[in-house]
Design a protein around this nucleic acid. Structure first.
Lengths: 103, 103
DNA sequence: ACCATAGTTCGATAATAGTTGAACTGTTTG
DNA sequence: CAAACAGTTCAACTATTATCGAACTATGGT
């Protein structure tokens, strides 16, 4: 049913505040999240992920956000489609995303 | 007028979101901030700052929060009185502290 | 089947952060 | 003024993160 996952994502109840705050405490990662507030987007199309940076670097930046539970990264064609876990974060930490996405 | 300061604090407008998020992304520092939401408190009385830890360690933990603009550390007798910069943070990033202090 | 695309993973290295003891600064108390 | 108190600063060390090239994996297109 679900697109091939393979990459681990924490369950909603396992999302930790400190991990989320850490993931968002980096300019590049924060910029990506800001971009994703508009809606899901393929990694390849995210201008927030510096296209000049090596792909291993971009992959790592996405990984930190994924492992913290901030975004979902799912296979979509031969791309990775990134989606902000808005409801999960809102449910765990009401108001957090809203305030961060404004900043 | 103001108690002897010496330690630098960023002006309100210089407080950066990523620095604040980073400062709050550590368990020990977050616990201290949680404690300070009740009101100002002297370092020496903060149970959130592990009393068994060396004072250089406690001093460093406080420094990160101070330099990020999360707390004020002012001389008060021979103690340091720590105060959450609630209005400054609220003004810069509305809703952020409220959501973090609940988590 | 083959090749290109879009990533992931691994291993090495660089950069940033955290911990701590020792020496130092400023303040209150005797 | 001297000792005690409360912390800061410094320097060395450890630990965690970030960056990046190279090899690998999976999918789509021809």
């Amino acid at each position: 049913m679900v697109a091939n996952e393979k990459l681990p994502h924490p369950d909603r109840e396992d999302i930790e505040l400190t991990s989320v705050l850490f993931a968002l405490s980096d300019e590049a990662r924060l910029a990506l999240v800001q971009q994703l507030k508009e809606g899901p987007m393929d990694m390849a199309n995210c201008s927030a992920l510096d296209p000049n940076a090596p792909k291993s670097t971009r992959s790592h930046q996405v990984k930190v956000l994924r492992e913290a539970g901030v975004i979902v990264s799912e296979l979509h064609g031969r791309n990775r489609r990134l989606t902000l876990r808005r409801e999960d974060i809102d449910s765990r930490f009401p108001g957090l995303l809203e305030s961060v996405l404004r900043g």
